[in-house]
């Protein structure tokens, strides 16, 4: 019976390794943005989109909605972020149908619904771009924590620039704010989080 002395130790070791492996494989998904446990739906909003139509956030229950605040004159930050989103949707394949991207203009003075539609089409055919009155935009942006202002800088064409908070927000199928992604998220990271949320 000499061999049996070490058997309990061996059994304990195997159990510990199995527990470790189990934890590794079922560990909670680590999001690449900040996760929220909101107790209420994200603030609803109405946007004027191309062809005289309007859309509301609440029209998209059942889909993951990615909300982004930007403007069509935006030289670098907005195209970069929308490009990352486009790539992430490609990585999702057919599942991308369950994601709706909405860009809200922080430049209601220059961005018309038609201009926004034309702009977002360059990134993805399903993207929606919308605007509203300056007062409504100020209110929507505030409730999504988005600060924006006309910056002192202009482009070489003399167009003014707008500084704005560049976060990307994911609203879940039930309309609750789920994740806030910082500027600089990669398409792989975004696709990873979207796949998990869409599972």
């Amino acid at each position: 019976m000499k061999n049996n002395r070490f058997l309990p130790v061996l059994v304990a070791l195997v159990v510990i390794i199995l527990l470790g492996a189990a934890f590794y494989f079922v560990r909670p998904h680590t999001f690449h943005g900040t996760v929220y446990q909101s107790a209420e739906e994200a603030p609803n909003f109405t946007l004027n989109v191309a062809n005289g139509k309007t859309v509301k956030l609440s029209d998209f229950r059942g889909k993951i909605v990615l909300v982004y605040f930007g403007y069509t004159f935006c030289p670098d930050v907005c195209p970069a972020t929308l490009g990352v989103v486009t790539q992430a949707l490609k990585d999702l394949g057919a599942k991308a149908d369950e994601v709706q991207v909405i860009m809200i203009s922080v430049d209601p003075g220059r961005d018309t619904p038609e201009k926004l539609a034309e702009y977002v089409k360059h990134f993805h055919p399903t993207f929606i771009g919308g605007t509203n009155t300056p007062e409504e935009i100020a209110s929507i942006a505030s409730l999504y924590g988005i600060f924006y202002e006309v910056s002192g800088q202009t482009t070489s064409n003399g167009d003014y620039l707008i500084d704005h908070t560049a976060t990307l927000m994911a609203i879940d199928r039930d309309g609750f704010l789920k994740v806030v992604f910082p500027f600089g998220i990669t398409s792989d990271e975004l696709a990873d989080d979207l796949k998990y949320t869409l599972r």
């Binding site: 446990q37 942006a141 505030s142 409730l143 999504y144 924590g145 600060f147 202002e149 908070t165």
Partner: peptide
């Protein structure tokens, strides 16, 4: 502490007459 929701964005004027924003 729970992450309850996003704090609103704002641009206010402080006691020195200077601007203070959420950023």
């Amino acid at each position: 502490l729970p992450r309850i929701r996003l704090s609103p964005a704002f641009s206010l004027t402080d006691q020195n007459g200077e601007r203070v924003t959420n950023e």
